[in-house]
Amino acid sequence: MTMTATIGHAHADPHHIGIVVEHPGPASKRIVTAYGFWVFLLSDIVMFSCFFAAYAVLVGQTADGPKGSEIFEHRNVAIETVLLLLSSFTCGMASIAADVRNRFWFYLGMAVTCVLGLAFLTIEFREFANLVSRGYGPSRSAFLTAFFSLVGCHGLHVSAGVLWLLTMMAQVFAKGFRADILRRMMCFALFWHALDIIWVAVFSVVYLLGSAV
């Protein structure tokens, strides 16, 4: 469906703007797919923003339960952050490998990304399990409700990302670097990097600022 650009039709400026840039026609599939996914990511970020807003509203409502400063462990959060950052990097390496169709580095990059993601999820899960076992589960207070939902929502996204990552590897294994698979890989990379951006907001707002409340 790609069209080559044709330029220049003289009578195309009804409002006398002076410059007429002729639209070249439908964009390539690669651009269309990635752009659609980009729009999806923005909508996902709006979804997150509601949970952030809820957290901001409810952070003080501890109902005589624990405050943020009493339950957050900054060391763990720092480790989680580094894990996700490194995974963003390795994900970038995997996308470069996919672009140059190098299977070895692609698998390696994806596998490391997967391991880092799983390590992140393990730490988060242990944090949650630990809180629940101390009686500080999400039903304890509105603050904990907001905390578990926001951080858990990010965790669910990471889990979905890991699942997607594995099917991406399987697809490359079974079908090779086909054009449609490369497009999906591009979307996956966008997804993974976006999750990292959301995590920056999570650790800053929830853990660091949240400890101050």
């Binding site: 080559t4 650009a5 330029i7 220049g8 003289a10 400026d13 002076g18 410059i19 007429v20 840039v21 002729e22 639209h23 070249p24 964009a27 690669r30 651009i31 797919t33 990635a34 752009y35 996914f37 980009w38 591009m186 990379a189 966008l190 990097h193």
Partner: peptide
Amino acid sequence: QAHVPTGHDLAPGE
């Protein structure tokens, strides 16, 4: 009128 060639567009992330 000045005609500017276009058609250059990048996918997000690219």
